[in-house]
């Protein structure tokens, strides 16, 4: 249909998924901000400022998560079938925390609601901490593997009664979970410093939090890098046989000097730069370095996971059940049709950026909150 062969389309769709996943990492500033709500806001007004700043964006983060799942469903349905039905409890946990998030923005300030605003703020904290941690741990299992067996008729058997929750016993998965939570808090601080028009008090605390949370990211980042060098990864041969390869993910980083190692290093440098500018100057523009930095880092993370003949969802239970972009993808026809439809994506992105500019045209100030001027008051 488009002149691409099957493998090229599989690679294109892995790159698309990597980009969407990386954009979700950027947008996780909403979840990060929700945990900062509990730790940096001291007065009712400060809380309402943060909630209103995040309340304008949370749906975009949620939509990206759905898009990430949707793209996986369409492009690599065997992964979707395996992970969502097999690792059932992890995904249910994640989804439940996102249900809590949705109702919290809706009902926090509704008059006469059953639960008080403190309960909804607590729900937002659960989504920002537990929800994001579980997503990080789930991404970790894409490196360390899940306990599944796939039959010839695509029936999934999960080899552990915890149905995915056993992933929380693997240190690498925990490290990815903590990394995602603390990175989201860094991004959340940078975003809020940029989006709130107030100076002093809250914003100073947020500048401090950006730096402290970056320090908290470091040990987990170092551990992950160390494990990428030392851990055994899952590759596959020309005829699709899954093989174990020591240091596979680090080799992938080196094998893709620009989008692998290059994006990772550039991304990390940009994040550090954004935080340092925010912490040690009066600039509010840190998110413009930190945000793209998070996207570059995320793209590198996903690319080394699926490209260069790597199994992106290995099975610890039955090695040959491991999923690769070649054995888990949709047919040539489906991928071609999807690629045609995806040509409309730039228009959607243009619309999103237009709406974003409208929402950000005025910074949120305490006066807006006190006068309830904003028509979308949360």
């Amino acid at each position: 249909m488009l002149g691409f062969d099957h493998l090229q389309l599989q690679q294109i769709w892995w790159i698309v998924i990597s980009l969407v996943g990386a954009l979700f990492i950027l947008m996780s500033f909403v979840q990060g901000g929700q945990t900062l709500l509990a730790t940096t806001a001291r007065t009712e007004l400060e809380k309402t400022l943060i909630v209103n700043s995040l309340g304008r964006k949370w749906e975009l983060t949620y939509t990206l998560l759905v898009l990430f799942g949707g793209a996986f469903f369409a492009a690599f349905p065997r992964f979707y079938a395996t992970s969502f039905s097999g690792a059932y409890w992890v995904w249910m946990l994640i989804l439940m925390t996102f249900v809590l998030q949705a109702i919290s923005y809706e009902f926090r300030k509704k008059p006469g609601n059953l639960l008080g605003s403190r309960t909804y703020e607590w729900f937002l904290f659960i989504n920002g901490s537990l929800g994001l941690f579980a997503i990080g741990a789930a991404v970790g299992t894409l490196f360390t593997g899940g306990n599944f067996h796939i039959s010839e008729t695509n029936l999934i058997t999960w080899g552990n009664p915890a149905r995915g929750l056993e992933a929380l016993l693997v240190p690498f998965n925990l490290a990815v979970g903590f990394l995602v939570v603390f990175l989201a808090r860094v991004l959340g601080s940078l975003y809020l410093v940029n989006n709130l028009s107030e100076e002093g008090g809250l914003v100073d605390r947020l500048r401090n939090a950006a730096f402290n949370n970056l320090l908290a990211v470091l040990p987990f980042l170092l551990f992950i890098l160390y494990r990428w060098i030392t851990m055994t990864g899952y590759g596959y041969t020309e005829n699709g046989e899954i093989i174990l390869e020591k240091g596979k993910y680090f080799q992938n980083l080196l094998a893709m000097p620009v989008p692998g190692l290059g994006f990772l290093l550039a991304g990390l440098v940009l994040i550090v730069l954004g935080v340092i500018v925010t912490r040690f100057t009066r600039s509010t523009k840190g998110i413009w370095a930190g945000g793209p930095g998070a996207v570059l880092t995320g793209v590198a993370l996903f690319l080394i996971l699926g490209l260069n003949k790597t199994a992106f969802y290995p099975s610890r239970f039955d090695l040959q059940s491991s999923l690769t972009i070649e054995n888990a993808s949709s047919s040539l026809y489906t991928l071609s049709a999807m690629t045609l439809v995806a040509l409309a994506v730039p228009f959607i992105l243009a619309y999103v950026s237009y709406v974003w500019r409208l929402m950000n045209s005025e910074k949120i100030s305490a006066r807006d909150i006190e006068n309830k001027k904003s028509h979308d008051f949360y």
């Binding site: 945990t35 901490s129 939090a209 949370n213």
Partner: peptide, 30 residues
């Protein structure tokens, strides 16, 4: 018995989330 385990599980979950909130507050205020 399952109900008891569920209650224990929830209690532990809430306790660890409260602990996490406390630790994060400490980190932010350092």
């Amino acid at each position: 018995m399952a109900l008891v385990w569920l209650i224990i599980w929830f209690a532990l979950l809430i306790l660890s989330l409260k602990g996490a909130e406390y630790l994060l507050k400490k980190i932010d205020e350092l």
